[in-house]
Design a binder for these strands. Sequence first.
DNA 1: TTTTATAAATGACTTGCAGTCATTAAATAA
DNA 2: TTATTTAATGACTGCAAGTCATTTATAAAA
Lengths: 217, 217
Amino acid sequence: MSTERKRARTQDQKHFRRQQILDAAEQHFTEVGYEGFSMANLAKLAGVVKGTLYLYFKTREEVFLTLYNQSLVRWSHVFLNQLQDAMTDQDYAKTLYTTALADGSFIPLLTRLEHVIEHNVSIDSLIQSKRNFIERVDCIAQATAPVLGLSEAQSLELVKTMGVLLVGAARADQGPPLQGEDIPADVQGLIDSFSSEPIFIKNACRIISGIRAEHSA
Amino acid sequence: MSTERKRARTQDQKHFRRQQILDAAEQHFTEVGYEGFSMANLAKLAGVVKGTLYLYFKTREEVFLTLYNQSLVRWSHVFLNQLQDAMTDQDYAKTLYTTALADGSFIPLLTRLEHVIEHNVSIDSLIQSKRNFIERVDCIAQATAPVLGLSEAQSLELVKTMGVLLVGAARADQGPPLQGEDIPADVQGLIDSFSSEPIFIKNACRIISGIRAEHSA
DNA sequence: TTTTATAAATGACTTGCAGTCATTAAATAA
DNA sequence: TTATTTAATGACTGCAAGTCATTTATAAAA
């Protein structure tokens, strides 16, 4: 906090200030979530005034998109580190799922990416974000191929598909907290049956098997 | 419009008025989408004043949840009607996908259900909505079993999983419109590779195969 | 028919949000 | 020391959801 009371004049100082805001944003996001996030509170937390935020980000969604980009990179490093020389399909799926969920921001931002965040963002930011995504996917696919015994092409398709499945499965965890509410047994049963981890893992395995089988012909 | 200038006194009249508001909401939603939807505009379109909306719906999200419930019922009828005696896995998946996307409200509401809509809704409405969901899923599963040659249990799991896959795959269509923007080839290639229909159908088939195989052992 | 009671409908109001912009002042250059 | 540049400010606009005291249409009672 005491490190920066001064004005950011050089490009380096501006990058540093921008990252300070992003760090505050990450903290604010994990504390209050997407709907509770406000630029006014972010400003307070970052120790600047609201107008200053708009010198560094054109819109609130530009902040979110940047947080998303960073969280994708962060998660991909964690995931790549956990890959072993040879893993069962199930271990692979479980590792992917667990590491993704362990990052507090990644899934909540990913599930809002297309239908909210990308709609209030400059084309340039969007292109930059997509490029970052391509790079991470390629990198993960390259590491995945030998682990699961797939071709590069198969591996690329798999990784892309895992993203789709992850978003679909993670939905279940995004519902409202129901602690202490009395939920009828039938409804509780439904919620339990959509528990995201087994759904993700089971279907990830089915999809891996499917992809592996398709080109053995 | 000329049918109802009067006050709704009886329960029947109130139900009718509520449905009038919902019809206007459906229209407003298809015109401006989720983010553009406002209660003030809905009031104008429904021919009432804003405060009146809150006599019939506790929050804006209660309106959306009701629209979602109705769209689920509407889609399920269309889908059930299109099921044939015996279909290939692919025909089944394609029919499911096509009918779901043909309904203008179903997918946009479904993709926002857990992380937005359900967070500002009464527990009672949520339970009612989940019960409606259970009923539709059961009904679809029952009809699906003979079509794909699955047991009832397999069919139930399949239908639930299709919902997960549908949400994940449909994300790709929810991005911002990019007509007329010049998108670099690599990014355009990425977007194309996430085209939702082939992703849904291919993986639906892989999952159906997987489920079918699991209990043949 | 006239009066009274009920509650549907109203719209002005509050609160909270994202985003803007004329002004201020810190840092650098002259 | 003075002039210039531009980061930072915070008061401001506009719009949204949701509230509530008041109005008034309608039904029931007299």
